[in-house]
Simulated scan of single mutants.
Amino acid sequence: MRMQQIILDTVPICIIMIVNKKQVWANKKMEEIFQYQKEDFKNQTTRFLYPSQEAYEKFHDESYPPMAAGHTFESIQELVRRDGTHIFVRFYGKAVAPPDMEQGTIWILEDITERKQSEEQIKKSLHEKEILLKEIHHRVKNNMDIISSLLSLQASTSQNKQLQEMLIDGQHRIKAMAMVHEKLYRANNTAEIDFSDYVETLVSDLILSYNKMGDKFTVSLKLSKITLDIDTAIPCGLIIGELVINVLKYAFVGQTCGGMEVSLDSTDENCQLKVKDNGVGFFKNFDYSNAKTLGLQLVEELTEQLKGKLTIQSMPDIEIGTEINLVFPLKAERGQLYESK
């Protein structure tokens, strides 16, 4: 018997027995945690451990029905020590002879205050980090908007038509990247964005800037809901921008109407992007890997960064227009667009 008492007093948890809502026995750990003597507990209710009468009654109303049914009741409660400090305690309760609650209940109490405080500190740190990341994305987006505005201003004052087009294209590349940061800033998740929503916004923005056929140009968007991280979203967004701009600038030369389809889909491992038009198509034996335009060079470099595969089909291989497919892994170690020399 003495050995059992030594064991019960040595364990690092509180063990108590309650009969008719009064404590009839407790081990030594109960004294250590709550700073009361055994005499203070014996034949007393545990009301004085609760911050309010309401909290005390609520706990008993919640705990007794499941214990009467033979179940173990588990709960975390905020209790009060003798010196007034609040602690968090995990309760495990079991009836001695359910459903007869008059036979008493056995309780195990574990002080989890330090763990709770650590969890709260981690949550606070994560929240502060999230706020910081949002602020960084916001500032990056604002800085890119300034650069975009400067390019637009430079284009509007230039008399050189070719230079104007280059500046406007550069402006839209900046806006495509800025849009990723804006989506991250506004999203609840600062690590990933809803890429389908991003593509819809990007394509709409480019059509407003480059479409010269008005309502005679039609666009079909078939976008599955996909989330991408920033390292994937920016290069993929730039690729979409280049492909859509290319369609709007060159696919319908000499035509008065046309259409384009942009689709986005994914499997468990890969993401597939398709940009298709019904325009004039590329010239025969066109090889995009040897293209000298900045836009297609960017597409090739960015495809390598995504560790993806790009295929281009044009007339006469397909019935009409051009179809460009990009397939890239959703999870991969991304390369860098520019290597330091």
Results as ranks from 00 to 15, higher is better:
residue 133 L to W: 06
residue 133 L to F: 10
residue 133 L to N: 11
residue 133 L to P: 01
residue 134 K to F: 03
residue 134 K to P: 02
residue 134 K to Y: 04
residue 134 K to T: 07
residue 135 E to K: 08
residue 135 E to T: 10
residue 135 E to I: 06
residue 135 E to S: 10
residue 136 I to D: 11
residue 136 I to W: 03
residue 136 I to V: 09
residue 136 I to Y: 08
residue 137 H to T: 05
residue 137 H to A: 13
residue 137 H to W: 07
residue 137 H to F: 12
residue 138 H to M: 12
residue 138 H to P: 02
residue 138 H to V: 03
residue 139 R to C: 09
residue 139 R to D: 15
residue 139 R to N: 14
residue 139 R to E: 15
residue 139 R to H: 12
residue 139 R to I: 14
residue 140 V to E: 14
residue 140 V to T: 11
residue 140 V to K: 08
residue 141 K to M: 15
residue 142 N to V: 09
residue 142 N to P: 05
residue 143 N to H: 10
residue 143 N to F: 03
residue 144 M to G: 12
residue 144 M to I: 13
residue 144 M to D: 13
residue 145 D to L: 11
residue 145 D to R: 08
residue 145 D to M: 12
residue 145 D to N: 12
residue 145 D to V: 06
residue 145 D to H: 11
residue 146 I to V: 15
residue 146 I to W: 11
residue 147 I to W: 04
residue 147 I to S: 08
residue 147 I to R: 05
residue 149 S to H: 10
residue 149 S to Q: 09
residue 150 L to S: 08
residue 150 L to T: 05
residue 150 L to A: 10
residue 151 L to H: 00
residue 151 L to C: 04
residue 151 L to Y: 09
residue 152 S to Y: 03
residue 152 S to V: 00
residue 152 S to F: 02
residue 153 L to I: 10
residue 153 L to F: 15
residue 153 L to P: 04
residue 153 L to D: 12
residue 154 Q to A: 15
residue 154 Q to V: 02
residue 155 A to K: 01
residue 155 A to S: 05
residue 155 A to F: 02
residue 156 S to A: 02
residue 156 S to W: 00
residue 156 S to G: 04
residue 156 S to T: 02
residue 157 T to F: 10
residue 157 T to E: 15
residue 159 Q to F: 07
residue 159 Q to R: 06
residue 160 N to D: 12
residue 161 K to P: 10
residue 161 K to F: 00
residue 161 K to A: 01
residue 161 K to M: 00
residue 161 K to S: 03
residue 161 K to W: 01
residue 162 Q to R: 04
residue 162 Q to Y: 03
residue 162 Q to D: 12
residue 163 L to E: 00
residue 163 L to G: 00
residue 163 L to R: 03
residue 163 L to A: 00
